[in-house]
Design a protein around this nucleic acid. Structure first.
Lengths: 200, 200
DNA sequence: GTCTATACGCCGATAGAC
DNA sequence: GTCTATCGGCGTATAGAC
C-alpha cells in the first residue's frame, strides 16, 4: 500500500507497546519510559514520534478505534435477534484473566480520563457513536423485518449499551461476581418481554 | 457525642478539602499538597493524620460512603413505584455544572482506580452492595404489594442500576447529549412494560 | 531515526523545631 | 498538632552526538 518512510513500523511497535503497558500497569502508570522499554527503544524516541505523552495516547486511541471498527464488521449477518445476541455475548463473555480483559480495565480508566481531556473525549465519543449506530441499526432491521416491536431503536440501543457497559465495568472494578450473570438474565428477559414480537 | 481529641475537626476539614480538590482537579491531580492548600494547612499535617496518600483516599471514600448512606434513607416511603421513580430521577437529574456534578466525575475516576487497588475496591464494593440492596428491596416490596410482576428483584435492580450508571457516566465523560433523555425514556418503557402489573 | 545525557519540576514522605 | 525544611525518586521533555 503506502510506501511510507520506515517510521511507520516503529510507530506500530509503539502502539503495540502502549497496549501492553496499559494492560499490565494501567493508565495511571503509563509512562513514556515504560512504553520505550516495552518497545525496546529509548525514551527519547517515543518523543521523537509523538511530541507529547498526550499525543501518544490520542494516537493510541485512534489506533484502537480502527481495530475495533474492523471487529464490529465481524458481527456479520443473520437475523436481527441473532446479531443482537452475538453483540450481548461478545460484551459479557470476555474471559476474566487474559491480556484483553486486563486491557479493558485500562480502557475504563481512559474513559474516565476523557471527562477532563477534550482530545480523548473526541475519539471516545466517536467510538461510542459507532457502537450506538451499529446496535440501533440492528434494532431497526429487526423492526423492519417484523422480528421486533415498534420500539425506539436509538433509546433501546442506548439502554442496552449502558446496561452492558455498567455490568462489564462492575465486573472489572468491583468484587461483584453477580454482575455479569444477573445482567445476562435481565437482558434476556428484556429482549423477550420488550423486543421480540408476539407470535401466536 | 464522642469527646474526641481535637484532631477530629482537622480530619473533617481534610475530608472536605479532599472533596473540593477532587471536584476541581480530578483524582489524577489529587496531591497531598493541594489538599493541604485547600484546607489551609501544611502538607506535612496531612501526612500526620494520614500516613500515606492511599490512607487519605480510603478514609475519604469511607467518609463519602457514610454521607451517601444518610442520603439513601431520604428516599423515604410511598409506593414502590414512587420510590423507584425517585431513585431514577435522583440519578438522572443531577444539574450539569455544580460542584456535585464535578465531583461525580472524580467518583468515576475513583471507581476506575478501584480495579487496581484492593482497598478502594473494598469500600466501593460495599457502596455498590448497599445501593443494590436498597433498589432490590424496593422491587421486592413492589412485588409483595402486587404493584410489580414476579420478576427477580436482584437481577432487575442490577439491570436498572447499571443502565443508569452507564448513562450518567456517558453524560459526564463523553459528548453525548442524548445519554440521559433517551435512557430516561427507555427506563420508563421498561418500568411500564416489564415491571408494573397489568390492571384491567 | 535513534541514541545518551540531562534539565527541571513535582510528588510523597520524613526530620526536627515549636 | 502543627509548622518549615528537605531528601530521594520519578516523569516529561529537550539538547546534541551519531
Amino acid at each position: 500500500m503506502s510506501s511510507d518512510t520506515s517510521g511507520t513500523d516503529t510507530r506500530e511497535q509503539l502502539m503495540a507497546a502502549t497496549y501492553r503497558v496499559l494492560a499490565e500497569r494501567g493508565f495511571a502508570n503509563l509512562t513514556t519510559q515504560r512504553v520505550a522499554d516495552e518497545a525496546d527503544c529509548s525514551q527519547s524516541l517515543v518523543h521523537y514520534h509523538y511530541d507529547t505523552k498526550d499525543d501518544l495516547v490520542v494516537a493510541f486511541l485512534e489506533w484502537v478505534h480502527e481495530q475495533e471498527t474492523e471487529w464490529l464488521e465481524t458481527l456479520g449477518d443473520g437475523s436481527a435477534e441473532r446479531r443482537l445476541r452475538r453483540f450481548v455475548d461478545a460484551q459479557l463473555s470476555i474471559p476474566a484473566d487474559d491480556e484483553h480483559a486486563r486491557f479493558n480495565v485500562a480502557f475504563v480508566e481512559l474513559a474516565a480520563a476523557a471527562a477532563r481531556n477534550e482530545r480523548y473525549r473526541a475519539v471516545l465519543t466517536a467510538f461510542s457513536e459507532r457502537l450506538q449506530a451499529t446496535l440501533a441499526g440492528i434494532v431497526r432491521d429487526g423492526i423492519e423485518a417484523g422480528e421486533f416491536r415498534q420500539v425506539s431503536p436509538e433509546a433501546t440501543a442506548r439502554f442496552l449499551r449502558y446496561a452492558l457497559q455498567g455490568a462489564v465495568q462492575a465486573d472489572l472494578t468491583l468484587d461483584e461476581p453477580e454482575a455479569k450473570p444477573q445482567t445476562e438474565a435481565a437482558v434476556d428477559a428484556y429482549v423477550e418481554g420488550m423486543l421480540l414480537a408476539e407470535r401466536d
